[in-house]
Design a protein around this nucleic acid. Structure first.
Lengths: 326, 326
DNA sequence: GTGAAAGCGCTAACAC
DNA sequence: GTGTTAGCGCTTTCAC
């Protein structure tokens, strides 16, 4: 690779002059500017960001740690995160931690060694102190990583309520609720509680089926859903995240249930793949793009320490997107 | 951040000794080893990979350029690529080029500036020469980037044939085929040709609808599918990539068509989200994990120039996964 | 306006 | 076995 010295020689100036021209610093005559730009073009010069990072102690790289990028929700989120980072001149280093704490710790160490300027985490397998001790700008996606780490999430409480009200309005009286693992403290627990509370206040029975912690492979869905439906043959309403909801609908149709006549289903997420499935899922739409944008914005503010005050809890509104399953 | 010098001082040795201990090079007494390891632990030292990269002229970073990570196929592929890279000690820098040539060129320049060791490309908006002139190890995912750039793809010819035979065996006589844009030369064109040829040899009529180049948003699907179905009211068989196939099934059901009785549908890809949809799609399964593994393996071989001979065309087998749409 | 030189944190000769 | 030193490709003081 050609370096700054090659450009300097070609242009007949010193390396510091080339650096100045590149970074548009100080006063340089138009004549030398032209010489330098021509040399750069002739040599097809690309400045070495590694050397720059070493000196500047800033890599402009952001680490993203997720449980599994291939899950539709994380895939969409990653898309928007990358897009926002790109606009701001940052690069994305992607890490799939698969909810393994050793894997997550290894990734964090790797990111530290690579001098990333900050990390966006949508995983939570370590202890709160471990995150704090990193001494690096961090933003959490829908996870509580301690009071000092900003969190970006949707309004789960409102979401749970909206879902409950939709099923109530449809006249459901025997409801099955697939909740995430309640062992890990995440904002979605608020959604589960809000959903159940809203229904119980109306004296509606809710059967909550708690899903295991590591539950990303769609192939694992079937047996758990089957068991839940076997145990609750008379349910007439279901609430679950979109992918679980879709898999449940599939199973219900196989069981000759008519949707929405026999059973109403409400999802949570608003995944774009819902545009491909029939019947169209009624779902609580998370603002995935805005969540991603806010996460990036908050992290970059943290890095720049631009705003003395950084919002620690960013909750974005959800909305009911009515389809044909209610 | 604490650096190698801090560790050296703390351990009472020179920086080169610390470096030797870290990299396990040369003979070092157990006593100094212990001193150094203790110092590293006490200071919670993480070696600076940026400095190492600068010296070694190797970043251990691989760039991945895709049209859109949020598309299920690319999301799955990315997952496996990251997994393989991680096992080999490489890191992944993710780029979404959105089929924009300016965007793709900017990403390539960015990756060059960041001294990536190689690039995996699943996009193709530049000229063949542009890729060759990069003078950097490159592997193409399902794109022809010139004779000298290895390509990894599934056996499209066999896939197209398998799909055609499946529809034939089901007795379809009026077939609608959604093909990707034929303006860009990609291996999937072979699939389209193979599909059509197989049917035409049996004197079966195929109506091919060519999709636009930039066609990733599921929201764009509907109007094109509607138009195709309006123009071909009597079709009894459909072939398309999984996502298009799913969206078409949705539209057919809306039109009160029974699947598979009235219309048979065969997909191409074998996406994991197919486990969530009903009826279960009959599809040609691409070996997504193996494709990803092969792409990584080939790229790393290219980087290490380990094998004097590097396979330039890696074609992996596909298989028919029969569901309930045929 | 431009150049010389130090230094970012590491590795690898080359000493001894 | 371990230390000294040059240098990877940049940026930035400090000269002039």
């Amino acid at each position: 690779m050609t370096n700054i010295k090659d450009v300097a020689i070609k242009a007949g100036v010193s390396v510091s002059t080339v650096s100045r021209v590149m970074n548009n610093r100080g006063y340089i005559s138009q004549a030398t500017k032209d010489k330098v730009f021509n040399a750069m073009k002739d040599l097809n010069y690309q400045p070495n960001e590694i050397a720059k990072s070493l000196f500047k102690k800033k890599s402009n790289i952001i680490g993203l740690i997720l449980p599994d990028i291939s899950t539709p929700f994380y895939a969409e989120e990653t898309r928007y995160i990358e897009e926002e980072l790109y606009k701001l001149g940052y690069k994305l280093m992607l890490c799939n931690a698969y909810n393994s704490s050793s894997r997550e710790q290894e990734y964090i160490n790797m990111l530290l060694r690579n001098q990333v300027d900050g990390i966006i985490i949508g995983s939570h397998t370590l202890k709160i102190e471990d995150y704090l001790n990193l001494n690096l700008p961090i933003v959490a996606l829908d996870r509580y990583l301690g009071d000092d780490i900003p969190i970006v999430c949707s309004d789960h409480i409102e979401g749970g309520k909206l879902a409950a009200l939709e099923l109530l309005n449809c006249g459901c009286t025997n409801i099955l609720h697939f909740s995430g693992s309640l062992k890990v403290p995440t904002p979605s627990n608020d959604r589960h509680k809000s959903f159940n509370d809203t229904l119980e206040r109306k004296n509606i029975k809710v059967n909550t089926v708690e899903l295991p912690i590591n539950f990303f492979s769609f192939l694992d869905y079937s047996s758990i859903i089957q068991e839940a439906l076997d145990n609750n043959p008379d349910i007439d309403g279901i609430f679950a995240t979109d992918t679980i909801a879709l898999a449940t609908i599939k199973e219900l149709i196989k069981r000759n249930k008519n949707i929405p006549n026999d059973v109403k289903v409400v999802g949570y997420d608003g995944l774009s793949i819902c545009a491909l499935t029939y019947p169209t899922l009624t779902t609580i739409q998370q603002p995935i793009k805005d969540l991603s944008k806010e996460a990036v914005k908050t992290l970059i503010n943290l890095i720049n320490k631009k705003n003395s005050y950084i919002e620690k809890k960013i909750i974005l509104p959800v909305s009911l997107k009515r389809g044909n399953t209610t």
